[in-house]
């Protein structure tokens, strides 16, 4: 095999795969943020905590109820999504008539509460979650662990299904219409508040799903969401929240860029996305896929 700038191909491919996996999480999370923001104009700061909850609920289901990974994959988004519905009904819905910044502050407070409770209960050292599909395949130029391949493939599929639902179905058409003119859509007899509640639930469910996918790769710990969500915010600023496909492409793309940076300049890998964000803001403030307002 070829060698690129003195980097063995195994290392390069390994980091590319890791980058793709991170990209999958960025895409899933920024997709949920974009869907919620589109309809509610609220930046959901709790998103990281809900991703962490996803991983924890999967761990609890296995620990206390003996429900394996595959069951968790279905149950966790529903359970965590339901908590999202409760949060939206009880708390967030009271703030729609106010400045959007209050929604951000409220969800930030919620994130602190959730993270604090989990830290109090489980410490911050992290809990293991065993890999549901061990083993892998040697592809000649790299070793592909089955589970990592599954994460990339499955999250891509989820992203595309979400995109299809929003852009190509009747339900998605209602959703897009309500994003533009909620008052008019309501006048046509569609229950917009209920739609908002369900959208929030689905967005939260997507975050929880990402959490389940992450559980076997990273250790399950209460701080896993907080650091990730800040990177996802940068991803969202880079992509702009105007287009669903845009957030998917940006998420995966930035994951790959981050993976490559880890190969060529490891020290910069933690900051590369923020640097890209700064550059994008200088050149194209509305984001790569955003529309200027």
């Amino acid at each position: 095999m070829f060698e690129l700038l003195g980097v063995p191909p195994q290392a390069l491919m390994g980091q590319l795969l890791l980058g793709l996996i991170n990209g999958a999480f960025y895409a899933l999370l920024s997709l949920g943020l974009a869907v919620i923001f589109g309809l509610m104009n609220v930046i959901n700061f709790t998103h990281g905590a809900q991703y962490m909850m996803g991983a924890f609920v999967a761990w609890m289901l296995l620990q206390y109820a003996g429900i394996p990974y595959w069951g968790a994959l279905v149950l966790v988004p529903v359970i965590v999504g339901a908590t999202g519905v409760v949060i939206e009904r009880l708390l967030i819905s009271r703030l729609y008539h106010l400045d959007h910044l209050y929604g951000l502050l409220l969800t930030f407070g919620l994130a602190l509460i959730i993270e604090g409770l989990f830290r109090q209960q489980y410490g911050s050292s992290g809990l293991p979650y065993s890999n549901p599909i061990p083993g892998g395949q040697n592809l000649g130029f790299m070793f592909l662990p089955w589970y990592r391949g599954w994460v990339v493939g499955f999250s891509l599929a989820v992203c595309l299904v979400t995109w299809f639902t929003i852009e190509r179905t009747k339900l998605g058409a209602y959703l897009r219409a309500a994003t533009e003119r909620p008052d008019l859509v309501q006048a046509f007899g569609i229950n917009v508040p209920r739609m908002i509640t369900l959208t929030y639930g689905v967005g939260v469910g997507l975050a929880a799903l990402a959490g389940v996918l992450a559980a076997p790769i990273y250790t399950v710990n209460p701080t896993m969401g907080a650091n990730l969500i800040i990177v996802v915010f940068a991803v969202v600023v880079i992509g702009g929240m105007g287009s669903i496909l845009g957030s998917i492409v940006t998420g995966f793309g930035l994951g790959i860029v981050e993976g490559l940076t880890k190969v060529f300049w490891p020290e910069a890998s933690a900051t590369v996305i923020f640097v890209i964000m700064a550059i994008v803001l200088m050149v194209r403030p509305q984001g790569l896929f955003g529309t200027p307002r």
Binding site: L91, R94, L95, L98, Y102, L105, L106, F108, G109, L110, A111, L112, I113, I114, E115, G116, L117, R119, Q120
Partner: peptide
């Protein structure tokens, strides 16, 4: 009280935003 500080701060955030902005 360990991590309860974080929980308390979160609660103050939520209550302030909802009740006395």
């Amino acid at each position: 009280f360990g991590e309860w500080v974080l929980v308390m701060q979160g609660c103050i955030f939520v209550l302030t935003v909802l009740l006395f902005r």
